[in-house]
Nucleic acid binder design. Structure first.
Lengths: 241, 241
DNA sequence: CGGCGCGTTGACCAGTGTCAATACAGGTGG
DNA sequence: CCACCTGTATTGACACTGGTCAACGCGCCG
C-alpha cells in the first residue's frame, strides 16, 4: 500500500472521494522530506507556506513551558496531516517534531488554496480532516482532566490502536508505538516514573503489553473498560452530500 | 453593537471580510433561539442539520464520564460559533449546553454548504474560525497536563479576559463570568472545593478577583505571570490572500 | 420566613511527583 | 564475538498537591 492510500482510508471512512479528488490530492504533493528523531519539523510562530502529510513514522505537536516541562498535544501516524491547520492559521502556536525517523509529503498552501477555489467538496473533506484532529483533542482534554493515570494511559493505547487499525497499520491486536515512557508522560501529563508504574499495572492485568516499541492488546474489552474508552470519535460519520 | 458584529470583530482580527461576505454571513441566519441555563443545546450523536452562533450568554461543550464526572472541553461567548464543526462532522461527539440564559442564531448547514460552493475565501475564514477553537483546545491540554491548579485557573481567567476583550465585552480590566466554582472545576479538571481554595489564593495576591459573576483584573502582569499565560493563540494572524 | 444553591472551612487521605540509585538492552568499536 | 556506552526502564523512600467528606454560613428568591 502506498502511504498516501492511508490518508484515503481515513477520509473514506467518512465520505466518498471521487477519482478526481483522489487524483487532486496526489497532485498537490510537491515533494517528500525525511527527518531524524527529535528534529523539529515546524517551529512555533514561523510563517508557513506549506502543509505536510505524514507518510511514515510518528510526529507530535508540543508546547514547552517556562519551567522546562513540555506537553504533547497531538500524536500523528502515517496518513495524518501534521499541520493542515497551518493552511488557515499561517503560523502555528506550537512546534511539530519527529519522534521517530519520519517521511512526509509536502503540500504547498497555494495548491490547497486552488482546491478551495475549485473543489468545494474536497475542501469540506479537508476541513473535516482538521475537525477529526479536534475530536481527538477533546478526548485528550477529558482524559487529562478527569481520568486516573492508569485510565489515561490505557485510553491512549486504545486510541492509537484504532487509529492504526483504520489506516492499515495494526495486525492481530498489535501495532508499533516506538516511543519512550518519557514521551508517553509528556502526552499524558505524567512523569516518566509514573508511566512506568502504570505500565506495570496494565501489564499485570494481562490486558495489554508494550515492549520494544510495540503494543499488543491481549484483551480489548478489558483494556477498553480500564480506559473508560469512548470510541465515539472514530464513529463520527460524515453523511455524504 | 449587534451581536453578529462580535463575530466580525473576531474574524477581522485575522482576515479582511468584504461587504459581500459580511452580508452573506448575516443572510445565513435562519432564526434565533433562546435557552435556559443548564439546558442541552446539542446532544452527542444526534445528526445535525444546523450550526449555531452564540449571540449572548455562555455555553460549554462537555463530555460526561461513566463515574458521573464531567469535563468541559470548551467555553463560548458571544460571537463564537458553538458547533460550526457539526457542519463537517454531522454528529458531535459531545454535548453543548447553556451555562447562562443564552441567545443564539441558527445557521442551516445547507446555507453553509452554499457558501463553500460559491465563496471560497469566506469558506477559508470559517474554516479558520474552527481552527481558532482548536488552538484554544491546545492551550487547555497544556494547562491540564502541566500547570498547577493555581496557574490553570489563572490561565483561564486570562484567556477569557482576552477573548471578551476582542469581541468588545470587557471594560476596565473586568468582564462577566457568571459561572459557579463547580463549573470552573469542570473546566479545569479540579474539584469545586479546590477551585475555592485557588480563588482565595488568587484573591490574596491582589492580582484578580471573581465575585458575583464578574472577574476584575487588578494586575494583569502579575496574573499573566501566575498563569504562565501564553497569548500566542490570540496572535495567530491570518495573512490575507 | 424558609428553602436552597453556592461558597467556605477543616481534617484527613490518596494519587502522583521527586530524587536518586540500579538494572537492562541495543548499538558501537575493537 | 566481546566489552563498553548510553539511553531507557525499574525500584524504593518520601513529599506534596489536590481530592474527599462533612459541616456550616450566606445571599437570593418565593
Amino acid at each position: 500500500m502506498r502511504s498516501i492510500d492511508r490518508l484515503f482510508l481515513k477520509l473514506e471512512r467518512r465520505d466518498k472521494l471521487s477519482e478526481d479528488e483522489r487524483a487532486a490530492l496526489e497532485r498537490v504533493v510537491a515533494r517528500t522530506e525525511t527527518y531524524r528523531p527529535d528534529k523539529d519539523i515546524v517551529v512555533e510562530g514561523v510563517p508557513q507556506t506549506e502543509s505536510r502529510l505524514l507518510l511514515s513514522g510518528i510526529t507530535c505537536r508540543y508546547k514547552g513551558l517556562s519551567n522546562g516541562k513540555r506537553q504533547i498535544t497531538a500524536l500523528h501516524i502515517a496518513g495524518d496531516f501534521i499541520d493542515l491547520h497551518s493552511f488557515t492559521l499561517k503560523k502555528l502556536d506550537h512546534n511539530v517534531a519527529a519522534m521517530t525517523p519520519v517521511t512526509l509529503a509536502v503540500v504547498p498552501h497555494d495548491a490547497l488554496r486552488e482546491i478551495t477555489e475549485t473543489m468545494p467538496h474536497l475542501t469540506r473533506v479537508l476541513w473535516l480532516n482538521t475537525m477529526l484532529d479536534a475530536a481527538i483533542h477533546r478526548e485528550w482534554v477529558v482524559a487529562l482532566g478527569r481520568k486516573s493515570a492508569t485510565a489515561h494511559v490505557a485510553n491512549l493505547l486504545c486510541e492509537m490502536y484504532l487509529r492504526n487499525q483504520i489506516v492499515g497499520l495494526a495486525s492481530e491486536g498489535s501495532y508499533d508505538l516506538p516511543l519512550t515512557q518519557g514521551d508517553m508522560a509528556d502526552v499524558c501529563g505524567l512523569t516518566d516514573v509514573h508511566v512506568n508504574r502504570v505500565m506495570q499495572e496494565l501489564r499485570a492485568t494481562g490486558a495489554v503489553e508494550w515492549k520494544s516499541g510495540r503494543v499488543t492488546v491481549h484483551d480489548w474489552d478489558a483494556l477498553q473498560r480500564i480506559a473508560e474508552f469512548d470510541p465515539a470519535f472514530v464513529h463520527l460519520e460524515h453523511l455524504p452530500r
